[in-house]
Every structure is written in structure tokens, then in C-alpha cells.
């Protein structure tokens, strides 16, 4: 598969950015031989049954990218209403709501939000969807089980061990036009439909007693160190796939704002780092 140089440049920029300043709990693994071979790793968010797990999300780019979304699927087994047994992900961002300004980072953040706020209404795994609606405890137990069996490595993936190469305090210079952040004038996704209301019966409150205390603690600690200077992901608990995306956009916009504000001195830091490696 060949992609245009413009697309290649865009991928290069995105990958650099994701390497240097990844969103919280997200890393990418690249392949020098083939930059189109991209795998994202999402750390199961705390307070969800996916905590402790590391979920691989694979990407495949078509010649239409970025006009058309990349193909994107879970390569790690997961029990989730919006993920099929083949790993397909049901989220509007990857299909009809795709915008060419979105990138790998945006997708990964969206998918991470989906782990926090599953959307039983657009179920790909109808069993998970029903459990989530009717029996939240069982849903959690089963999701935790699958997380433990399939997604929890003995040691943390190395990508999460090395802190981001730049001091988080400094942030990282990202031009405002980069793919992760929607452009300032970009309209946000559709308004919340009047027929749906926030989900009340099964709030994704943090589980008080983690399944495997020792492991969870480790993660909590390391998370705390690596993310203390970043905004927490706080999308609203809305119940459609659309709404999830809306939460994501808010977050990335806020982040982009912070980043562009930091532009100016932070890049020098990055350059120095880069030069040291020479």
C-alpha cells in the first residue's frame, strides 16, 4: 500500500507527537520498517473493569486516509459492549462522524473514553450490552476476568515504563493545526439528542476493591507519577457513541489550548533532547 507524501508527513508528525507527548494512558508502538504499521496501547482506565489491562489497538491505513478513517480494531481480547469478538469497534468517530482532521491520537483517546463510558445502545457484543444495562456487577466481573486473562501482562509494557521524553511541566510544542486537536472552527459533533438522558442506574464509579491489589496499586502509583501534570479525562457520562466523542473533543480541545499556550519555549527543550541523541 502506498500513501501520498503529504499523508506520510502527517503520519510522521503525529507519531512524533504521540511518542513525545502521548495522551494519558496511551502509547503507540511504531515499526521502523513500515510506518503504516501502527499499534496503539491503551492502559485500562482506573475505576473501570479494564484497569490493569493493556489493550492493543491496531491501525490500517487506506489510500483514502485521511479523507476516510483508518481501519482500527482491538488486537487484545476485551469484553465490552461496543467491541465484537473479532475486535471491531462500534464508534461513530471511526465511521460516519469521521473528519479528516482527526488522527491516531484522537481515535485512541475516543476508544479510551469508550472504555470508561461504554454505550450499550450500539452494542456489537449484545451480551455485554445487556449485562451492562441489567447487571452491572456481572458485567464488571466478566470484563475484569477477560482483562486479567487476556490483557494483563506480567510486566508493564516497556512503552509505559519510559516516561515521555520531555518534562511534562514543559509540555510539548504542537502546532495548533495538528491532527489530534480539532481545528478551532471545527464544529463539535451533534448535539445530544433529546430522547436520551444521562445513564443513572449504572454509573461507572470506581470499584472500591481492585481484583488484584498488588498489581493495581503499582499501576495507580505509576499513573500518578506520569500523569500528575495533565488534565484528567473527564467526559460527561452520556449514553450515545456520539456523546462519547463529544466528550473527547472537549478534552482534546482543552489540551490543544494548553499546548499551544506552552509553545515558544518548550520546543527548545525538545530540540535539545533530540540533539543529545545524535
Amino acid at each position: 500500500m502506498s500513501v501520498s507524501p503529504a499523508t506520510m508527513r502527517r503520519l510522521m508528525r503525529e507519531l512524533t507527537e504521540l511518542k513525545n507527548d502521548p495522551p494519558e494512558g496511551i502509547r503507540v508502538v511504531t515499526n521502523e520498517e513500515n510506518m503504516l504499521d501502527v499499534t496503539g496501547i491503551i492502559e485500562g482506565p482506573e475505576g473501570t473493569p479494564y484497569a490493569g489491562g493493556y489493550f492493543k489497538v491496531r491501525f490500517e491505513f487506506t489510500p483514502e486516509f485521511p479523507a476516510a478513517p483508518p481501519k482500527c480494531w482491538f488486537a487484545t481480547k476485551i469484553f465490552h459492549p461496543n467491541v465484537s469478538s473479532q475486535g471491531e469497534i462500534c464508534v461513530n468517530t471511526l465511521k460516519k462522524d469521521w473528519k479528516s482532521t482527526y488522527g491516531i491520537g484522537h481515535i485512541l483517546v475516543t476508544v479510551k473514553c469508550l472504555l470508561i463510558f461504554p454505550n450499550p445502545e450500539s452494542a456489537l457484543d449484545e451480551e455485554a450490552g445487556r449485562l451492562l444495562l441489567e447487571d452491572y456487577e456481572s458485567y464488571c466481573s466478566r470484563a475484569k476476568l477477560i482483562t486479567n486473562v487476556h490483557a494483563t501482562p506480567r510486566t508493564r509494557p516497556p512503552e509505559f515504563e519510559t516516561p515521555a521524553p520531555v518534562n511534562p511541566e514543559e509540555g510539548d510544542s504542537i502546532p495548533p493545526s495538528t491532527a489530534v486537536a480539532p481545528l478551532p472552527g471545527d464544529p463539535l459533533p451533534l448535539p445530544i439528542p433529546p430522547s436520551v438522558s444521562p445513564r443513572k442506574s449504572a454509573p461507572p464509579t470506581p470499584i472500591a476493591h481492585p481484583l488484584q491489589p498488588s498489581l493495581s496499586n503499582t499501576i495507580t502509583n505509576s499513573l500518578a507519577t506520569s500523569t500528575s501534570n495533565k488534565e484528567r479525562v473527564t467526559p460527561m457520562p452520556l449514553s450515545t457513541a456520539n456523546s462519547n466523542v463529544s466528550g473527547t473533543s472537549d478534552m482534546t480541545t482543552a489540551k490543544a489550548g494548553k499546548r499551544s499556550a506552552a509553545t515558544g519555549h518548550s520546543g527548545i527543550e525538545k530540540r535539545k533532547k533530540a540533539l543529545k541523541r545524535l
Binding site: A68, P69, N82, S84, E88, I89, C90, V91, N92, L94, K95, K96, W98, S122, A123, L124, E126, A241
Partner: peptide, 9 residues
């Protein structure tokens, strides 16, 4: 594109 859950279920 069509959502995968629309196609599947």
C-alpha cells in the same frame, strides 16, 4: 461508512 453494530445487530 456504516457503523459496525448497525451491520451486525
Amino acid at each position: 461508512q456504516t457503523l459496525s453494530c448497525t451491520v451486525k445487530n
